[in-house]
Structure formats: structure tokens, C-alpha cells
Design a protein around this nucleic acid. Structure first.
Lengths: 250, 250
DNA sequence: TCCTTCGGATGAACAGTGTTCAGAGTAAAG
DNA sequence: CTTTACTCTGAACACTGTTCATCCGAAGGA
């Protein structure tokens, strides 16, 4: 796609084109290149120099458009959730709506290698993402959650989603570094748990087959479901007080 | 405390001491120094060179005892949870036991600056931590959770705890970089949410006062409580199947 | 047409990073 | 007293993020 950068022959007057040959550098193009590098090299090797090389440009040129590497990461973070769709709140279907929200978020986090690592380094409330937080709160609010539960539920869900995705990418990294196939790593971890001394680790041994062997999709969904049930249990209750430890449902 | 490194005078024969003057470098001492640097400088400035300087030793000396920076981080990770106490499972009090477990974990993560960042870069099952995972599973298993729920609950809790602590340390970092007091930052964030256009962000505006203003302790506990209720709702139920979306309790 | 202006792009430089390696130094072993 | 084993040193390599004086080329004014 890139124009080969050949010198103009002396006999041919360079055309005075209004459109410059060099596509001008923009934030958009820089973020694009950053994603390319991220997917190819991974987070640890995502450097300003690599991004510049990807664009065929000097490193310092990037700093005209971007204050920091940190700012670049933030731009990537924002782009990942661009056009995120959160439905109109429907009190009847709030569970499915939240589940969809969570699945969509995870999908986007996994759509680029190591994206979760970038997300985790970012304070979760950037202006660009506020609309999505707002809509999630609308969905949860329509379900009838008490104020205080509502206030932390958004944070909670995103913490879980990000944490889960991060763990996934950590496993992927380990697999990339040491193994040839993901199944092989999974089997080995599986075996490892199963081979622990049963007298000291009865539970880990007993659960070895499903601790790792279950599909990540299933484990993710079940985790969200657990949170959903927890949230649902507050519907109709008054706001929990400062010592929110009791209140039955055992 | 450190011995001043004076040359031995020529008239005084150096005592043939069995105990060497230079305290020998060990993994323990390296980890100690790493913690000192971490607390003083933060994660971003925790470098092998800083650790070596803290010990008054060449950088390359560290690599005799530690394979990698990554291994050093893992050692710090393990040390943080050394001597963690998980009680004997008591089916009657499993909720409080899990809550204690979570609080203790958070406390340890906050006991050293940026510790959560290190934790998040580590695959959660190192051999040293398996006993604690095992005991947590014992507590949860005694409560009567179905197998599949039990298998992911440990992971879930640690994901939440780590994620929460990480977010706390991110805020602390932001506060350190820009503000003079934590209260001031909190008030500003508070104000920011309250000043959003109410027509576009009704929920965020309405919840502004408790989104940030609540104490972190309270928000943390409530989050754990939500997970506990979610888990509790599975007691007595059969194992959820692959499509675990339904099953009442709305 | 020339000249000036000015913002984007350059290359070199600075201070720092993780990691390696040949070679000192020292202590125990033979 | 020599040999061996092993910790530790200093220098080096290949990187990193970031800054800065310099240069180029297009736009606007005369």
C-alpha cells in the first residue's frame, strides 16, 4: 500500500500537486500504526520507535501530535470502545442486557493482543467512555437497584471484565513463550493440578478437570451471572448501611 | 546500621573472622531492597539498577541470584502473601470467612505502594500461593457450592480484589502526580461528575456524591458482599449447564 | 515572482532501562 | 600451597521515552 519513495528524475519536472505525496501524520494514523505494532509485537515491544518505523517516520515526529506514550495508550484505549452499543434500558431484560454488555466488552478487549494490559493502566473514567458508563447505569437503574449498589456496580463489572481479560492475555503470553499449542498448555496445567498431593490439596485436585479445562467463554459468563445474581438480590431492598455485612439470604 | 567500609590499618592484622564482613547477597536481601525501592520510587522507577544501588552492589551481581526482573517481581509477589491466614472451614460462617479473606488480601496489596500492579502482571497460580487458594476453596466448598461455581469462585474473588486494589493505586498515582491532597482530588472528581450535562448523564450526575465520595473500604466490602450473595444463590442448586443464563431469583 | 513565516518533520543527543560476559577477587577444598 | 568454585565487578550492547536545534516545504503577503 505504501508509495515507494523514489527520487524524481531530473528530466521530469515534479508535478505541483495540491495533494501532498506524503500522507500527513495525524493522531488517527498514529493510533492505527500503534495497533499494528501491538498486534504484531505485543505490549512489551510496543515502543514509540516501533510505531514511528511502522509509519516510516522519525520518532520525534510523533511527539508533534501526541504528548506522551501515555497519551497514545489512552487514545488506543478510547478507540477500542468507540461505537460501543448499549441498548435502551428494559427493566424486564436487564440481566441479558448487562450480560451482552459484558460479552461485548470482553470481545473488544480480546480483539487486540494485550489490549487488557493497556486498559488496566488507565483510570477507567475518560470522557470518551462516560456515555457507555451512563447507559450501563441506566440499564441497572431501571432494574431497581438501590442507589449505593448502583453506584458501585458499574465499577465492579468493569473490574471483573478487565481482570478476566487480563488474565486471559497473561495465559496467552505464557503460551506464546513456552508452548506450541494452547491445548497443550491447558492439558499440562490440568495435569499439574491433578498431580498435587491429594492430602494437602484435596479441593484443587478434585476440581482440576474444570478449573482450567472449561472454556473461557463459559467461565466468563458464569462469573458475570454470579455478579448479576448478587445484584438482583438487592432489588427492593433499602440502601445497605455502612456495615453491609449481614442481611440474610444465606 | 551499615558498617562503614574503612580500610584495615597495616599495623593491625585483620582478624580471621568466620563471619564475612560483607553480608552475603541473598534472594531475601534482594527482595527486601526491592521493596524499599518500590515504596520510595514506585513501580515505574523500580529498576534493577536502583535495587543494586540500594544494596551498594553492582547490577550484575543481582543476576547471580535472580534469573530475571520478572523472577524478582514474582518473589515480591510471593512474599506479599507469606503467612496469609485462612481459617478452618466453618459452614456456618463461610461468608464472614470469605469477607475476612478478601479484606486481608486487599490490606496486603495496599501495604506496599503499587503492589497491585505487580500482582496483575503475574499468573495467579504460583506454587507458593496454592495453599491459600486451596484453603479458600475449602471454605467455599464447605458452604455447599456446586462444583462448577466453586471452581471459578476463587479466580473470581482474586480478580475482583486485585482489580479493586489496582484501581486504588492508579488513583493514588494520579493524586501523587497532580494534587496536594487526596481529599482535594476526590472533591474535584466529585464536582466533575456533578457538573456533567444532566440531560445526557442523568445517572452519573445523580450518583456523583456516592460514586467517589464513599470510602474505599465501604465500596470494597459492598462489592465482595455482592459476589457473596451471588455465590450463595447457587447453594443447593445443581451444577449450572453450559448455557447458564437463566434460573430465576430475579 | 520573490520573500517571509511557520508548523511539521528530522537526526542527534541524553538519561535511563534489562541483560550479558570476560575477568577480578575470595573462600573453601584437596 | 595449589586448585577449584563461585560471588561480584565493570564495561558493554541493544534498547527505551523524551527533548532540542535544525531544516524543509508549503502558504500568504508584497
Amino acid at each position: 500500500m505504501t508509495q515507494p519513495d523514489m527520487p524524481t528524475p531530473p528530466w521530469e519536472r515534479p508535478p505541483k500537486r495540491r495533494t501532498p505525496a506524503r500522507v500527513p501524520l495525524t493522531r488517527e494514523r498514529i493510533v492505527d500504526a500503534a495497533y499494528t505494532v501491538l498486534d504484531r509485537e505485543g505490549y512489551d515491544r510496543l515502543s514509540m520507535r516501533q510505531v514511528a518505523a511502522e509509519l516510516g517516520v522519525a520518532v520525534s515526529a510523533l511527539y508533534v501530535h501526541v504528548r506522551d506514550k501515555d497519551e497514545l495508550l489512552q487514545l488506543m484505549y478510547n478507540r477500542t470502545f468507540e461505537g460501543y452499543e448499549v441498548p435502551e434500558p428494559d427493566p424486564e431484560r436487564w440481566r441479558e442486557q448487562v450480560m451482552d454488555f459484558a460479552r461485548q466488552a470482553r470481545e473488544r478487549l480480546l480483539s487486540h493482543r494485550d489490549m487488557a494490559k493497556i486498559t488496566m493502566g488507565q483510570v477507567p473514567f475518560t470522557p470518551e467512555l462516560l456515555p457507555y458508563v451512563e447507559r450501563l447505569l441506566a440499564v441497572l437503574g431501571a432494574a431497581g437497584l438501590p442507589r449505593r449498589v448502583l453506584a458501585i456496580s458499574g465499577d465492579m463489572l468493569s473490574t471483573y471484565i478487565n481482570g478476566f481479560a487480563l488474565e486471559e492475555s497473561l495465559w496467552q503470553q505464557r503460551y506464546r513463550e513456552t508452548h506450541t499449542s494452547w491445548h497443550k498448555l491447558r492439558d499440562e496445567v490440568n495435569e499439574y493440578f491433578a498431580s498435587l498431593p491429594p492430602d494437602r490439596f484435596p479441593n484443587l485436585v478434585a476440581l482440576a478437570d474444570i478449573m482450567v479445562d472449561e472454556s473461557n467463554d463459559y467461565r466468563f459468563d458464569l462469573g458475570v451471572e454470579i455478579i448479576l445474581r448478587g445484584l438482583a438480590s438487592y432489588i427492593g431492598e433499602p440502601d445497605p448501611d455502612e456495615e453491609g455485612k449481614e442481611s440474610g439470604e444465606g
